[in-house]
Structures are given as structure tokens and as C-alpha cells.
Amino acid sequence: MRIDVHHHALPKDYVSVLRGKGIEAAGGRDLPAWDVAGTIAMMDAHRIDKAIVSVSAPGANFGDPAEAGRIAREVNEFLAELVKDRPDRFGFFATLTLPDVDTSLAEIAHAFDELSPHGVILLANSLGTYLGDPAFDPVMAELDYREAVVFVHPNELPGPEVPGIPPFAADFLLDTTRAAANLVMHDVPARYPAVRYILSHAGGFLPYASHRIGFIVAAMTGRDPAKVLDTMAGFYYDTALSASPAALPSLLAFAKPGRVLFGSDWPFAPEPFIGYFTSTLDAYPDVDDDTREAINHGNARVLFGTDA
């Protein structure tokens, strides 16, 4: 049975907020229908024992910190109730309010002291500011104190789209890659070592381009290229929309052992997509049974402990 670390919820009140702002799509993907019964049916069909749910892009902050705080609190209370009702099937990542630091710190305190999340979700860029920016250091310090897991999810790029190519097709992969490179550029993993990062969609382009990015970061910072690559290989990576014969070899060749986790990207990934990538992982000839079992659930149990 699988533990799904890349799994989204769309609470009705949150969807109403988005539509009230004229947002009918996330990353170019129309907001899908979502409910608990349909989610559990999908999980059962694909042998997903537990899902760590989160709210996807565009997140909670639309430019007003007070509004962002209200949205994040409502989302987190909703997801905590979902977990309370079905602790056997769900956990959750708490939503924060970056780029606003003060409301993010307040929500970390509330979530970790009152709601028991599995970690937090942070967008790769929040209103154009990328993870790794020194302005976010107070939040990273608090997450380090909490020994938090941070699920890094892409957002729309802070620039124009290419006409006809929806952001979720390619831009999302670049967004995650940018965030990972920026975290390493500013030495955030070394400065806040208790934080564990999960990079969405197999890290975007990071595994494939890791040595190129690593040597450039090392040259710009004066650090040892091997240490930069070791830091990037130490991120966790999920398989959402990425367990393919093209992506898996690069991911498994680069990531450290124990760092690859199962992800579905439900409900933004429709069920046929989930079926394709899941069946590919299950049948991929270059993954032995022990590695497949670790990806499906073993690595997540180690990362989250007995709560997974």
C-alpha cells in the first residue's frame, strides 16, 4: 500500500475564494471537482493507503497579509478536521502565507501547537520571491526549530506564459528547479539542517541538470562542487507525474537512497494519468522490489515516523 505525499484537497470555501478573485484554474489546469468519497475511491483503486493532503498553488496570499492569514487558518482547520475524521487515510501539510513572514510565523505556531500537521507546504515562489531568499530566513529558522518537513510545490512563474503551453506542462518544473537551486545557492539546507524538503514532480529538471546547476552554484559561491551536489541529492523527491521510463533513471541515479517518495498529484492529475505513472512504477524493470517498496511507502514511514 502506498503513502502519497503529493495529494491535494480543494475545500469548498477555498475554491469560493479563488473564484471570487476570478481564478478558475491553477497553473493553467481548471480547478477540478474534489470530495472525500471520490478521493478515497481513487486511493483504493490505486492501492494508496494514506495521503498527505495539501492545498496547491496559488496558495493563500494574494497580496493582503491579513486576508492571507484568514485563508490559511481556514484551510488548515479544514484539513485538520479531515485528518481527525479519517486518521487512517489522511495526514496534511499546513498552508503558510509567504511572502509575508509575520503571518507565516503565526500560522506555524498555530498549526504545530494545535493541529499536528505532517509538515508545511511552501510554494517555490510566492508572489515572485523564491524559496531561499534571505527575507524568508525567520520562517526557515522556525521550521528548523520544529524539525519540519517542507513540501515544495511549484507556482506559476513570475513572468508571462508561452501562448498555448499551460504552466503546469513545463513552467511548474522550472519553478521547482529554480527554488531548489536558490535554496542551495543561499546555503539554506546547511544553515537550517533539521528541515527536510520534498521537491514536487521529481524535482522538476533538477536531477537531469544537477551537475550543470551544481558546478555553476559552486563556482558562484566558492563552495566545493561535490558538497553542492551532495546537498541537492539529499532532497526528497516525489514521483507525481514523473514515474516514467524517461524520468525515473535520472531521478534514481541522482537522489540519495531513501529519498524518493510516491506522489499522485490528485485531483489535478486525472485518474488515467495516475494509473499510467503508477503502473509504470510498478512494472519498471530497473527498480527492484525492495526499492519499489521503499518508494511506495517505506521511505515515507522513515521520513514521517509512526504517523505516516
Rank of each mutant, 00 (worst) to 15 (best):
R2K: 15
I3N: 03
H8R: 05
H8I: 02
R19W: 05
I23M: 11
A26F: 04
G28V: 02
R29I: 13
W34D: 03
G38K: 07
A41G: 08
M43N: 02
D44Y: 09
A45D: 10
I52C: 02
V53G: 00
S54H: 07
V55W: 02
A60D: 06
D64K: 09
A80R: 12
D85V: 14
F92D: 04
F92S: 04
P99L: 04
S104Q: 00
E114N: 14
S126N: 15
G128A: 01
G128Y: 11
A135F: 00
P138W: 06
P138D: 09
M140Q: 01
E142K: 11
V150F: 01
F151G: 05
V152C: 10
H153G: 00
H153K: 04
P154T: 10
P167G: 07
A180T: 07
A181S: 15
A181V: 09
M185K: 13
R191P: 06
A194F: 05
I198E: 08
P207L: 07
G214H: 10
I216E: 13
V217N: 00
G222W: 11
R223V: 06
V228Q: 08
M232D: 12
F235W: 01
D238P: 02
D238L: 06
S242L: 10
A243H: 07
A246V: 15
S250G: 10
L251T: 06
L251M: 14
A253W: 09
F254K: 08
R259N: 14
R259C: 06
V260I: 15
L261W: 10
F262H: 13
S264T: 15
F268L: 10
P272K: 11
F273G: 14
I274Y: 10
G275H: 11
F277E: 12
T278Y: 12
D290T: 15
G298E: 12
F304L: 15
G305T: 08
